[in-house]
Design a binder for these strands. Structure first.
Length: 205
DNA sequence: TGCCCGATTAACT
DNA sequence: GTTAATCGGGCAA
């Protein structure tokens, strides 16, 4: 397995798995999250290989849905296979995939991609940064893929979104989630071992 | 209505 | 390693 997933995860070069349907996301968030490592996310054909995610379960104090349904988190309470987009720190957008059966209010935060498709568009949107920093962080990847609050609630199996399963085994590492104060010790952050496109390295990775 | 704070980032020292 | 930027959500009054 290529250290950075380059050989296997570029859709136009090596092919990728089948497009993921809603039933893929209808499982436990703790199964879906590691299974998304190595999958490919495209928005209007721009995107790449998912290398870092975090799981947020409804019973988890760090989850936006923990204190019940509100206008902001309503999408989390809806059917799986849709995106929950929220504004972070009043500045950035962050994107989640809603998981588990409808009403579970659990989701996976997409934290980093290896850029694969639409590099020119991503560079234009992100400004003068190295390719390593194009999508290495939840706010950065939303800027690179032009994901905004307008996409909140959109389906992952309909344009402009498309998610494809990985087509080869990957080595997944886990560790504590980033930037939270509640339940900060839970190892619910998952990443592609050794990838240089992580927002931060994992301790043992 | 007011206040506190956050699932972040980039530009500093 | 530290810090400013920046604003909507959620809760108290």
């Amino acid at each position: 397995m290529c250290r950075n997933c380059n050989r296997y995860c570029q859709p136009e070069k090596s092919g990728h798995g089948a497009q993921l349907a809603p039933d893929f996301f209808a499982r436990s968030v703790h199964e879906v999250a590691p299974d998304l490592i190595g999958a490919t996310l495209l928005v209007d054909g721009v995107g790449g290989c998912i290398v870092e995610v975090e799981a947020y379960h409804h019973a988890d104090p760090a989850a936006h849905s923990f204190n019940g349904r509100t206008a902001r988190n309503a999408v989390m309470f809806g059917p799986p296979g849709h995106v929950y987009v929220y504004r972070s720190y009043g500045i950035h957008w962050c994107v989640n995939f809603v998981c588990e059966p409808e009403g579970s209010a659990s989701a996976v935060l997409i934290r980093a991609l290896m850029p694969v498709a639409g590099l020119a568009a991503m560079r234009r949107r992100r400004g003068a940064v190295s390719d390593r920093l194009l999508c290495s962080g939840p706010g950065r990847l939303c800027q690179a893929l032009a994901i905004t609050g307008a996409h909140n609630g959109a389906a992952l199996d309909r344009p402009p979104f498309a998610v494809y399963a990985r087509n080869v085994p990957v080595e997944v590492v886990a560790g504590p989630r980033i930037g939270i104060t509640k339940a900060a010790e839970l190892p619910w952050r998952y990443g592609l071992k050794g990838s240089r496109f992580l927002s931060r390295s994992f301790g043992g990775a």
